[in-house]
Design a protein around this nucleic acid. Sequence first.
DNA 1: TTCAGAGTGGTTTTT
DNA 2: CCACTCTGAA
Length: 736
Amino acid sequence: MENPSSSLLSGLNPEQLAAVTWPPAPALVLAGAGSGKTRVLTTRIAWLLQSGQASIHSVLAVTFTNKAAKEMQLRLGAMLPIPVRAMWLGTFHGLCHRFLRLHYRDAGLPAAFQILDSGDQLSLIKRLLKSLNIPDESIAPRSLQGFINAQKEAGLRAGSLDAPDPHTQRLIECYAAYDALCNQEGVVDFAELMLRSYELLQANAALRSHYQNRFKHILVDEFQDTNKLQYAWLKLLAGEHAAVFAVGDDDQSIYRFRGAHVGNMAALMREFAIDEPIKLEQNYRSDGHILTAANALIAHNNGRLGKNLRTDADAGEKIRLLQAISDNEEAQFVVDEARALQREGWDLAQMAVLYRSNAQSRILEQALFRAGIPYKIYGGLRFYERQEIKHALAYLRLAVNPHDDNALLRVINFPTRGIGTRTVENLQATASAEGVSLWQAACSTGGKQAKVAAFVRLIEALQSHIGSSNLAETMLAVVHDSGLMAHYQNQKGEHQERIDNLNELINAAVAFKPLESNFEVLPENAATDPAWPILAFLSNAALESGEHQALAGEAALQLMTIHAAKGLEFNAVFLTGLEEGLFPSEYSLAERDGLEEERRLMYVAITRARKRLYISMAQQRLLHGQTHFGVVSRFVDEIPAAVLHHLSPASGSLVAQQHSSQRSNPFHSRSPAAQTPEKAQNYAGFTLGQNVRHAKFGTGVIIDAVNKGDSAKLTVNFGKNGIKVLDTAAAKLSPL
DNA sequence: TTCAGAGTGGTTTTT
DNA sequence: CCACTCTGAA
């Protein structure tokens, strides 16, 4: 009989197999672009569960984006019949949120605490600065926001900071005032979700040991993107015993500007005594020339952990390089080539146009629009960030947590109900004089002001709705009773989209699956508090506002920044705007190691392409209303000339002669069939997944076995000592 | 209170 | 160039 793990593990290359079946000890997997990183991560979880080494209770798996988390859930669910949603599998912020909902009391938070997204955070900061009489030119709201987030991401509270200069001193004071205000209003920003969780684990020994004992396996995706706080949180959760299994690629670290700390990879190796990372260097995505270019480019960086991608694919086509006279010509080139490829049978949805900054998209858009080529731009305004949606949610937030001043200010006069700046200022004065929230001030002065009183009654009506109806009915009431829907319906002009969005929000409330299935143990307020479904819905909206739903529909050319393209792949990629100053960006050159980060970005861009890669630049470009004259980016010079094919825009047909016949993707793993775990079979006294010790190779884990009469042939992964096949008749193996 | 016109500033982005 | 914020008049 075939052993149960074989179907799970079949099709893995030796490196992947070594990673998937690594014994329960800390490991760092250096996974190059297109090397099957997600597959390794999910297969390892499945293997740990199937071989009985772990239960879904003892695994924690963390990613950065909701997209990645969903992908893992999906794949895992396809491999094993398990209640995936109850697992601690999610984003850093999502898991911390779950933790804080469970332990809100210990964390010092109200049961109805709300999450601030970055827009909410910024408006709260503006309000704070105004109340402190600090003018914008003294401290810009955005810079304070950056300061606060950076401190939190480094795990630092205002009280523990020292000021090297008077300006920083002011910033620190504002930080302290900001935290106080958030506490007063019962709101937490994204970074606070992490920091509060970390501090709670650190301060509460009982809680800490509970979770440390619970999580035997901690798996981390995109580890190179973790910031210092996230790393500290992981370390605290891991305690002395958990097997931290981190997957990442230092060459794809492109988020330093928001706190990512590549140094965490070296720190992990040092602090968890990992001798050597496991390297996944076999690339299953790109043709040879493309990979050659990527390897050569990234070799210009210093301080890499060291990794070189290889492929079994053919060299494929050379990279096509165009120096256009102008940005218009560059855009026209993209249009012509995309059309030509489409005529050859390439799928439009499998082509992408990438650029360094969003500002570059406009001219491409115009050209595509004129040519009638369908396209889809990623990275626009997200659903939950649209103003009509934020307004509706603010009514809801106010209903569950009336002390949320941010929410009150957003909707007290929207739609306009005659409560102007003057009235609001009076409320703010009353509130700060009496040390109460705006809501309380509105309630107490409402008697004198009919308009304010009407607003108070509106919110109270919504509150009573919560007690008597379900989420969907409450949402319906919010959208209509607030006057929002009527407001957009009565306005002439372009408001149909907003109306559609509000209806879509009601649909989302109807379809919302309560978070209950995300908890094995429910928070204490979940069963008793009628507002719980609303809290769940609002949290979900804040944490998952980033999901750009891939629109199913007509095939469209994909336009996005290089950052947004990370993790994606396309048959053909147009990499545009390769000019000094633009890419690498002027900004980056001033920063320490900024150029290296830009080069990693270029590396990410190149490795998105499977079959065909175009690189283009414009000698003349209109930026901020001014014409810039650019020279070719140094990154182009760092690609070996042997893999480049220069195109000349004057030569008529730009499409090179070769036709690519392999459109279907010959590689790519078959997804292993769903597999029910079978009863552990006995192999000469051993079972799959069992940990064993060998005199010479140390401790390892059994990943495969075949019975052979009285003895058995065991395949054992000894971690850094490799994978060995041992005969129980000869080898001295003892159970651990 | 509201709306329209002047002014300003402008990487990358997830949660 | 364009999108967003602020200021002044109706």
